[in-house]
Write a protein that binds this DNA or RNA. Sequence first.
RNA 1: GGCUGGGUGGCAGAGUGGUUAUGCAGCGGACUGCAACUCCGUUAACGCCGGUUCGAUUCCGACCUCAGCCUCCA
Length: 472
Amino acid sequence: MSQADIVFHNTLSGKKETFVPGNPEHVTVYVCGPTVYSYVHIGNGRPAVIFDVLTRLLRTRYPQVSYVSNITDIDDKINAAAAANGEEIATLAERYAQAYRQDVSALGVLAPDVVPKATHHIAEIIDMIETLIAKGHAYASADHVLFHVPSDGAYGTLAKRTLEDMIDGARVEVAGYKKDPKDFVLWKPSSDEQPGWHSPWGRGRPGWHIECSAMVKKHLGDSIDIHGGGSDLTFPHHENEAAQSRCANDDPSYVRYWLHNGMLHLGTEKMSKSLGNVLTIRALLESHSSEVLRYALLSGQYRSSLTWSDELLAQARASLDSLYQSLRDATAETSQTSADMQGLKQADYPDTVVAALCDDLNTPRALAAMHELATQLRRATNGEEKTAALQQLLAGGWLLGLLHQNAEDYFTQGQPGDAATLSADEIEALIARRKAARADGDYAGADRIRDELLTAGIELEDSREGTRWRKI
RNA sequence: GGCUGGGUGGCAGAGUGGUUAUGCAGCGGACUGCAACUCCGUUAACGCCGGUUCGAUUCCGACCUCAGCCUCCA
């Protein structure tokens, strides 16, 4: 019984294509991470979460998946930030690199197999630049090394624009040392204050794009299956990266599937560091649970833009609550969470969720399927049905990186920013007093206690088994 | 200006040439001392104008409009 093909929208063709790995025994994935000179914003979290779901899916199907996601730790903005607060450049970059790992880890993102950094790959970068020069695709000029764009016949095929298109509204600086205005920097000289490494072209540092080419080659090879990143990286970053790699590697199929996620918006505009309209993950975690943030990120298909707002977060929380509510009813006797569902057989993951994800990571459809599974679980009339539905729901939760908390804890521990101030013991004591009042027929007194709790952010749910509570 | 991708019910967001997801919210009912939870039922949509078709939200064309990239950006 063969299962559904995985289909991805490939930026290269502009179409959905069936995913056929170069080597089904070993699938290779590379995703561009952030440049670390400040805390990352929630927009940076989107590719981290999306491609986390991608690798979770791939790993249910392929025996080996190598996932590499870099951190850019050499960049003029890093230099500027370090200079601004009198800090060592490497210290600042490392501090924010660690913060990035913490932030995306909080979003439930599993660590990639390798998280390479540009500064640890200077030798590989220099090697690749030398190769490009030797093959006539790059040249040294005025202490710089430049990639000669017209030397690559395939240039522009990713971003789908011709050289003529680019000359039209070009805002490129016309540096005198460039043979062609579109030529871009592979290596540039450093002043004494700037970080630099010795090279055949003097002390200097790499340009932006070459690090990814070098790190992909080192960790995954000359040709890989999937390369992901934000849609704003398509041009020039990925176009340039692809040009470098295919010219240096003699392999025209540098990347078989290019996947680009859409941007997060704040209001009508893209969330962007340069515009300054960003919400850091760190700040959001002060008033929202990390899982709500992840749910919100998954509530839109990854290629579309997603407008980030308080309403989105409120709806994400309400929706996640409803999934946990069905788990709470079902998991009284088990401590299982989705974290226990890693590494199941393919067939043990729910078909509907898998099918949605196989269709170009359609996470909104996958979430819809999760809610349908939750409904099945609530409707289950016997233990067998209930167990089966529970397993399905939790297994789907694993694929999406949701439902890893114990349902009871989810509701009683509350979330950052909740109004609740009472301790569990105080709440239980009030519930006991209310129970006594009800037993005495003192409904007015019982309701007073319930209202008091509600004011304190605690909602009660009565059932035959007793009264339970949740923070709201 | 060039290139790319959108405009779906109160909100978010899938999908489809005819039976019209899912979540939140709303409405009616059941349950409850009353609520909450849960269950049952239910309202409501496809930017605009043409075309193709027995039939289009779905295909084609024009238009309006929004966003992204063309500079650092996930």
